[in-house]
Amino acid sequence: MQASSVEIRNVSKFYGPFQALRDVNLSIPPGKVTCLIGPSGSGKSTLLRCINFLEDYSAGEIRIDGRMIGYEAPGRRMRGRALREMRRSIGMVFQQFNLWPHMTARENVAEGLIRVRGLSRPDAAGRAADALAKVGLADKMDNHPSRLSGGQQQRVAIARAIAMEPRLMLFDEPTSALDPELVGEVLHVMKALAGEGMTMVVVTHEMGFASHVADQVAFMERGELVGVDTPGRILHQPEDPRIQGFLRTYHERNSF
């Protein structure tokens, strides 16, 4: 598998007068796991959604393997076809899973293979079955999402993304909507994916995952990227008082 790299340069984003991203710079190396952490409303999800251009950005540039996403040139929007072509190799997993409730697990995974990759139905069904087996759901293929637990739904969503053979995976708080006892199974699948050398960008509140799996951790606050470094330096020896404050609150909340 060929893994993508992402270069984020001087990216800013405004919602009207509100500045959601402030001149963000971040390099995401190929085959590595980058975790984005920070308080809610700090812009981490917005930044993640800019990477596959679900959100547009107002200034700066985001390049995937050297090619800018969303704009042909600064200020000139990319056409739909070119954008779709770039998105094809970027998988995304959402906080709310966003499975399509009118399709079974297998149909959810096969849909993109049929519509986007142009596979025949039998080929897509076969590939969907493989992807579902990979996330440990071979026996749940014919269930509709409403018949699956949150953790199972999120694993179907991961299978839906990896079946497209992406070179980059974006995770937007993938475990935040899950009951605590279901978080582990999703993180387990994500760890396995990281082990295969997938480039991953993960917005998360799971400090344990960030600490053990991430190659680099970026801390954001108020739309600003405050620091990016190894998990050890960000999570265990942070120098910036804003990171120290965030982690203190985190530890207080998680101690009992």
């Binding site: 679900l54 779709r84 072509e85 998105r87 998988g91 399509w100 993109g112 519509r115 839906r160």
Partner: peptide, 8 residues
């Protein structure tokens, strides 16, 4: 969004 994200 999920459909747009996979390139539909």
């Amino acid at each position: 969004e999920a459909a747009v994200a996979i390139g539909m």
